[in-house]
Design a protein around this nucleic acid. Structure first.
Lengths: 339, 339
DNA sequence: CTGAAAGCGCTTACAG
DNA sequence: CTGAAAGCGCTTACAG
């Protein structure tokens, strides 16, 4: 067991001062070559690595990014993390991930913990409960302390900060339009409860597409699901209406449940029922039939969010507050669930 | 913009010493009640929170756990992270996640970075490349520095440390046995290349089950896949042999690809072909047919790994090196792909 | 009851 | 060319 070596120990061994060791290792020209090389050789031999914590304290920055997301087992969020990691690592930042578990309290706790010196800035997506309560004081507070925050996907207008989103409304619009273009007359919507920001926006896009095409919009064709596990009954009730020829779902879990339910009821996808879902998930690629999706491109969102945060962290003029909202383009990936 | 307040500032405002402030906030009985309450009130008002970095440096521990995993978009790993998070948070630990991307170099880099003070201990699963090279010096080094490591899932016998695994061999054995019990005569195996430890073990279990049941073991029924994206051709070649009546796959991606390929070839699952997969993933639950799996119970693995690490971190007698390997039980979840 | 001092591991402006 | 000192934000043994 050989503990990590410190500057102090090197200094003692070599009988020089700590300052001399520090400067030598940072290749300072202040130090004579002989001393410098001697110190460097010694440090290398003992595999000296500076202590990050001491550096953080000294520099008052940690070169770490905090990520707060609702859940990690959702493929979309994993994808975003991947995107963030890529860019962060390129720029010498590490990444600390905390899960809010869609709970307001955990979100607040995690943010407070990370904000106390552990990280230089946040990338986050709001928990459901936070969106429901519409209480964002913890975020305001962090921003007021001068710590930059980038929000993605589940964002809110009530906070001024950089954001990375997709245009949920127009992406939904296009998806529904494509169904209409394919001759679908009666399109149902399977969405979340309204307080989930992206669910609401996608609903708006759905409605607008219908109206723009002169299709009467029917409340009964919209179902708002709170809990994925119990949605099968609601969906099967919806599909009783045999005239429904397409379903637009705001995520792939809803979509695949529609397919399964439809199959059980003797409906074939896509012959009797076309289905499109929002997602960047993996189920769509492997379900039978595979599902046509509006791709959210989580990698790109993550890349962009990390880039925005790091830019802000490393910009000189910290005070300029020209926050921007980056909109990542989406596109329809046509698979077997539509015809 | 009001920056975070420090002990020093409180001391100055209140015209007392930093020590007095510190002690007051920690409810030290050394301090007079009046002063103590005054300081506490002031601190509360200004929302004082101690700086984690300073505490880490002072205490020489960070109360953070480092997780190094190959990939985050695999449902199994996300599940394990979830399990780790739960226990870690309960014990006041935060979690830092780094991805090795199945690359040896990234694994080494990430470990070195985290080992320099950022975390108190590691929980990790080896990257493919690390298993292939069988180079574990970075892990040995960390352990030698006195930093505990817990490995899970993809582990190695060459490192002595705590481990959390499932009994891959016997779980595979049981799965294959259940196929045999259901009258299957010709069971194929779709596995990974051998250097992936769990792939190898599952292969061993498969072979043993066959032999124990007096079924001749046939090399041609085993395919070892390096890359999921290109496995369809290999699988379809395997399934040409119409006598094959069951497939045992070491992960769900292989399994679902088998189903799709079989369907294209006019084979029905489970009527013509039974399929069982190792996984804790989500595809199995939503594919058509749903897939019978050997559940890996990632949550439980994560829970256990975190518990073992924290126990070691907080045990007094640091030197005892009675490393243990915890074996998490698995069980077969019967779904539609078997009969 | 309060505070000065030392220390965690490092950097850097300044003195010599 | 080298080193002592101050400082990042905190804690705590010790002095008064």
């Amino acid at each position: 067991m050989k503990k990590k070596i410190t500057l102090k120990q090197i200094a003692r061994e070599l009988d020089v001062s700590i300052s001399t060791v520090s400067k030598s290792l940072r290749d300072s020209s202040e130090i004579g070559e002989e001393t410098r090389l001697k110190v460097q050789a010694f440090a290398k031999f003992y595999n000296y690595k500076p202590n990050n914590i001491a550096l953080s304290l000294k520099n008052r920055k940690s070169k770490a990014i905090g990520i707060i997301i609702p859940e990690i087992v959702h493929h979309f969020f994993s994808t975003v993390i991947n995107g963030i990691e890529q860019v962060a690592n390129e720029h010498g930042y590490s990444v600390i991930i905390c899960l809010s578990d869609d709970s307001f309290d955990k979100e607040v706790l995690n943010m407070e913990m990370l904000a106390n010196g552990s990280i230089d800035g946040f990338i986050m997506s709001l928990s459901k409960e936070t969106q429901f309560k519409a209480d964002f004081h913890h975020i305001t507070e962090v921003i007021n302390q001068g710590m930059p925050v980038v929000m993605f996907d589940r964002v809110t207008n009530e906070i001024l900060c950089d954001k990375v989103i997709i245009d949920d409304k127009s992406a939904a619009y296009e998806a529904v339009q494509s169904l209409i273009d394919n001759g679908k007359k009666k399109i149902a919507l399977v969405t979340t409860v309204d307080y989930v920001s992206v669910g609401k926006l996608r609903t708006d896009g759905y409605i607008k597409a219908l109206l723009d095409n002169g299709i009467p919009f029917d409340e009964n064709l919209i179902i708002k699901i709170e809990n994925v596990d119990t949605c099968e009954i609601i969906i099967s009730k919806l599909l009783q209406d045999k005239a429904i020829d397409a379903v637009f779902a705001v995520n792939e879990l809803f979509a695949v449940t529609c397919i399964k339910t439809a199959n059980k009821m003797g409906l074939r996808v896509p012959e009797d029922l076309s289905i499109i879902a929002f997602t960047d998930g993996i189920i769509s690629k492997y379900s039978t039939p595979t599902i046509t999706t509006v791709s959210q491109n989580g990698i790109k969102m993550g890349n962009k969010a990390a880039k925005m945060l790091i830019d802000r962290l490393e910009s000189e003029n910290e005070e300029e507050e020209n926050y921007i909202t980056e909109v990542i383009e989406t596109h329809l990936i046509e698979r077997e669930s539509t015809n």
